[in-house]
């Protein structure tokens, strides 16, 4: 009886894992000119070209878009990170805790929040903030910053982020790509996405 139960449980667990892994691979086409909501939130964007929305998610309130794979061009939407939560899912609360967005986090502290997240989540050895300035995002006062970092793969990537805190939640869009060619190639496509972003 015991063996039957354990066999059953194992089978169900295996089936669940298989189902999850299959679902995680379903990437979706985001068509040029068609408005779409992102990360299950009330944020919509209207892409100026076709993009791919990856099936895998790095966090509860996130969605990642790419053209050639997230290693080569990565647009991530952080759509309504609530206080007390990290930007992405923690792999280990004990061994690799991530910095949290809190009720007292200020806009000027958002770059530091992203840097801390990268250092732990991506094992970035080097992270350099290049510029920070006040800017409008989703029609609200926000922050725009640029940065550069090198991951474990020894490839230096450039990044830029647009963020705002709305009703106590963090909304942010980031674009990261290798500084060799890839960043410049899709920078304008990302900025067009940012300009099109609306909060319903």
């Amino acid at each position: 009886m015991m063996l039957r139960r354990s066999g059953f449980a194992l089978a169900i667990a295996t089936l669940s894992l298989l189902a999850l892994s299959t679902m995680a691979r379903a990437h979706k086409l985001r068509v040029q000119g068609a408005a779409v909501t992102v990360a299950g939130s009330s944020v919509t964007v209207t892409p100026s070209r076709d993009w791919n929305s990856l099936g895998k998610k790095i966090g509860k309130n996130t969605e990642t878009w790419t053209l050639d794979g997230e290693q080569l061009n990565d647009v991530t939407f952080f759509a309504g990170i609530a206080p007390g939560n990290p930007l992405v899912k923690e792999r280990s609360k004990k061994h690799a805790p991530l910095p949290k967005f809190t009720r007292t986090t200020l806009l000027v502290e958002v770059p530091e929040l992203l840097e801390g997240t990268h250092r732990t989540y991506k094992n970035s050895g080097a992270f350099k903030l290049l510029s920070t300035q006040a800017a409008t995002f989703l029609g609200r006062d926000g922050v725009f910053f640029t940065y550069e970092f090198t991951d474990e793969d020894q490839l230096t990537r450039r990044g830029e982020a647009h963020a705002a805190i709305i009703d106590g939640k963090l909304f942010m869009m980031t674009f990261e790509a290798p500084r060799l060619g890839y960043f410049a190639r899709s920078e304008n496509d990302f900025r067009a996405l940012v300009t099109s972003a609306r909060l319903r």
């Binding site: 691979r25 990437h27 979706k28 086409l29 076709d50 993009w51 791919n52 790419t66 053209l67 050639d68 794979g69 290693q71 080569l72 793969d153 020894q154 490839l155 230096t156 290798p178 060799l180 060619g181 890839y182």
Partner: peptide, 29 residues
């Protein structure tokens, strides 16, 4: 040169994940 080699590796990883693995291809591709 080192950075280009790292870029070559990143491109190769993307090709493996999103082109060679037929069931995981990106819709735009």
């Amino acid at each position: 040169l080192e950075e280009h080699m790292a870029l070559f590796a990143a491109v190769s990883r993307s090709v493996i994940e999103y082109q060679f693995f037929v069931g995981n291809r990106l819709p735009t591709k």
